[in-house]
Design a protein around this nucleic acid. Structure first.
Lengths: 210, 210
DNA sequence: GAACCTACATACGCGTCTGTATGTTTCTGA
DNA sequence: TCAGAAACATACAGACGCGTATGTAGGTTC
């Protein structure tokens, strides 16, 4: 019993979780850089310090691995960015917090996974494409609600349909963040400015921190 | 002589040009939808009404075809969007014309070729990646000059480094345009708003047409 | 410590896609 | 009108990457 607790002897569950995490992280990097089609599982495994055997022991196939990466990323996004949005009571403040938080979140090298997958599978009837679209749709709906609330409160001027506005809102700051590629600290400010601009708000006053 | 001019008998040069165009267009659609890695030449040829034999007769290989598509798109972009920018004398007006023009340009299904290739090859030492980056760099430089001019004239407020601003500027309206996916007429307005926001201009006054 | 289970490695079959080599049709020019 | 060239189709070879089958080392349970 004591022997089995020695630090160099790890439990099976720990061992499994450790390699799973390493594989997920490696796969996320790979997906972010090369996309799904160009992702080579041999490379993913090697980068994580394993072989393809370990990968296929933990994941059913390439698709299963990708879905796991997606789920993993969405969860961390919710934990890190979602909570920032929740904290804000004003709709406009929440939307700008979303843009800022996303910029900070994307400073890691896994930033482009969602965008890459969405571009690669958009308009196709594919499991992965649907998974990304579904997650994205939730985000769009959330923005639609916030924008509607902001308009009702008079904080956001009338204009294009709410859904179009939400799509452009997300696309704009996402595009800015990817283009800046983690250039702190400007990424945060410029993402917020892009977001404010789409919403029809004066970017300089909207992004002035209290 | 007369017989050779009959409408159902086309000259070899015409024939060549016609099939080349068909192949280029088909390849552009494919690249836009699936990216380089997932592009299947058999599909490209079939969509254009040919076989891979015709394709390999006109283009050296997949890479050559892709570079030709890129060149073709850049040229039409210059003809359709570039001229709009040239016409404006004020830097800010030129930048907003760029955003608007790009939105209109991207209503076609070849919109995402450049973005897809840039995402797929960014950070890699690949001929295609360099070609896209080089073209993009020219555009960035152009924006840098316009932004500098705008700042000198007092039309654009000071802030982040010009290059960062230019990158975010391009990324923001490009992202918005892709997200809207050709939803006329909102794409044009919202692209301009995103662009104005990044530059620090009030989007409502900046996008008010004269 | 013996039997069992789990984590991981190695080896191979198979399909897919690219590029080339060779055959067939269509046009051109003397 | 016919020989040659260009456009295009078909057939084949090689590479690559996925998934699976099988072997081995390390951990767990009794």
């Amino acid at each position: 019993m004591f022997l089995s607790m020695r630090s160099d002897r790890v439990t099976q569950a720990d061992r499994r979780a450790r390699s799973r995490n390493a594989l997920l992280e490696s796969a996320a990097r790979g997906l972010s850089r090369y996309g799904y089609g160009n992702l080579v599982l041999e490379q993913v495994a090697t980068d994580a310090g394993y072989t393809r055997g370990a990968l296929y022991h933990q994941f059913k196939d390439k698709q299963d691995l990708t879905l796991a990466v997606l789920e993993w990323i969405l969860q961390t996004w919710t934990e890190e960015v979602g909570v920032l949005v929740e904290k804000e009571s004003e709709p406009v403040a929440a939307l700008l917090a979303l843009a800022r938080g996303h910029a900070v979140f994307c400073r890691r090298d896994i930033a482009r996974v969602a965008v890459a997958l969405r571009l690669e599978f958009s308009g196709q009837d594919h499991v992965i494409g649907r998974a990304v679209e579904d997650a994205y749709e939730l985000l769009v709906k959330r923005c639609v609600r916030l924008i509607n609330a902001g308009r009702k409160a008079g904080a956001i001027p009338p204009g294009p349909p709410t859904r179009s506005l939400a799509l452009a809102f997300l696309g704009a700051f996402e595009g800015a963040v990817i283009a800046l590629d983690g250039q702190a600290p400007h990424d945060e400010l410029l993402a917020a400015r892009a977001a404010a601009g789409v919403l029809g708000l004066d970017p300089l006053t909207a992004t002035r921190r209290p």
